[in-house]
Design a protein around this nucleic acid. Sequence first.
DNA 1: GGTGTGATCGTA
DNA 2: ACGATCACACCA
Length: 195
Amino acid sequence: MPDGDVLGRDFYARPAPVVARQLLNKVMVHGELAARIVETEAYGGADDPASHGHRRKTERNGVMFGPPGHLYVYFTYGMHYCACVVTGEEDESSAVLIRAAEPVRGIEQMRPRRAKARADRDLLNGPAKFAQAFGLTTDHDGLDLCSDTIRIESDGVAAPKRPASSTRVGLTKGTKARWRWFVRHSDFVSPGRPS
DNA sequence: GGTGTGATCGTA
DNA sequence: ACGATCACACCA
């Protein structure tokens, strides 16, 4: 019994900055788990030096070069996974990183995966925390969000008309673009706010 | 509240 | 070598 409309291919087949803003307040669902997205970052293709899609297609980033609406999960810092949504046209290699979300359902299942989390706000307030709480690893790399068990729904809550924005987090290249967006005043946004 | 640092390993 | 990070120590 879905509590909302599943986002279709057309939703994702738009420029990453558009999708990133429209994903705010949408609900990501994975089995019994559900969470409202409150923070995203857009990553471009060949023209964005910060993007994994900036370089040639490899085994790791291959999904980014595929059709939109698929999940791109990568491993980083020797211990963390992060989850993205592929956007734009095929071969464009653009994507949106899910950086933070507010738990909606399945908190009891998220807890053991995030033993360090003290409050509910610590369960999903960072890209690697989100992936960990949602149980996402490279096993899920390439899953189709339009037909598989992992999907994103709209439950009628609109994206903010004027979301807060900033530069992207944790980069050494492409630091100028203000391609991070988040829901203003949300308690579930990741800590540490760049300019 | 803030800043600094170690962990840990696949990818290029 | 270096990360699209996190947690914890320490200082204030």
